[in-house]
Design a binder for these strands. Structure first.
Lengths: 180, 180
DNA sequence: GTCTAAATGTTTAGCTCTAAACGTAGCATG
DNA sequence: CATGCTACGTTTAGAGCTAAACATTTAGAC
């Protein structure tokens, strides 16, 4: 049995590169399809690095990531900063239950208000309050500036190219992925 | 005020493309650096799609993702399938506390054992049991086969190219990102 | 030897999420 | 009108994670 631990140092500051993981599986279980590993693994790790970094920045600012996500979507929608919970769920990719909880928290903090839609449906409309608007304005520049620094190694063309590849893959995986 | 909701339909089955989000912020807050958005947003969404899809597959198989992650790292390490908790923490990118909980759960289920290292350090060595080994063997092919299907739209060269761009970005972001 | 600093693993408090169970409000059909 | 279907939002149970507080051991410094 080939021992990966023998061929790659275990005390490096970062985890194995994905190529090494794929190689390890091919050795340990020949025949297993490993072609997704070099895409999925770095993708997850990058997402986690960005998420952890953002969470720490936001913790300093006294905001939590879920609330920022909610307020951002409302803010981006433009005046009058309103969306239904259903739209919020779709735009943020979290379940309706989670939206319900997020909105409840934000409402308790006075960042949004909730009211029934008047269009005959049962929809609930969530509106950004002035407090919520202020919070977003205070925060978003810092978050985006920070994240801009994190991707600073990419050249404009390299960034555009990677962005389009990711968006293309996202569209495709979105069609194939199993829904709730 | 430009209203994004006016220029992009709200009832599409998927969320806005990242380019649309970046454009919305440039309109709503000119001057805010938006160059990270087209990288970070699709990255997060892809990571979530893959994570959700895997979680659902694993639920059918009666496994939870955190345990699979733990067992996978041990399995890939090759015989005798042992790593210290510190190494596990680094290889899986989760905190020491989370590893402690994961190992405790897996130990309760008889999937791993725990013992003190005999090399004079205080390290705890985690070892895969036969039950744990069986569980991983039963599961990993299905997971990797499924994920291989999800990235099937990529050509071999396209996949290799994307993989290397991601790995490069990961290495760089790993250096810049804020650590705990 | 004694004391202190560094290294490690564990426990706990607080959050957030998903899935599933609920509770209802529109709506169509007969 | 009843009846049942469908669409939606909310609540709840159970998991898992992070950060921080702990606890304990090892290794030096003197």
């Amino acid at each position: 049995m080939v021992i990966v631990a023998d061929s790659y140092p275990l005390d490096t500051p970062s985890p194995y590169p994905a190529a090494e993981i794929a190689r390890a599986w091919r050795r340990e279980r020949p025949g297993t399809p490993t072609d997704s590993i070099e895409i999925v693994t770095p993708l997850w790790r990058l997402a986690k690095l960005f998420a952890d970094d953002r969470r720490r920045l936001l913790a300093d600012l006294g905001v939590d990531p879920a609330t920022l996500d909610l307020l951002s979507v409302l803010r981006r929608a433009g005046a009058p900063y309103e969306l239904t919970t259903r739209e919020l769920s779709r735009l943020t990719l979290v379940t309706a239950g989670a939206i319900s909880q997020r909105v409840a928290r934000a409402e308790d903090s006075g960042l949004v208000t909730r009211r029934n839609a008047d269009d005959g449906s049962r929809a609930v409309v969530v509106t950004l309050t002035e407090t919520g608007h202020d919070m977003i304005e205070r925060t978003v520049d810092q978050v985006l500036t920070r994240e801009s620094e994190l991707v600073a190694s990419l050249s404009p063309t390299g960034r555009a190219e990677l962005a389009s590849q990711l968006q293309e893959l996202l569209d495709d995986v979105g069609r194939r992925a199993r829904k709730p």
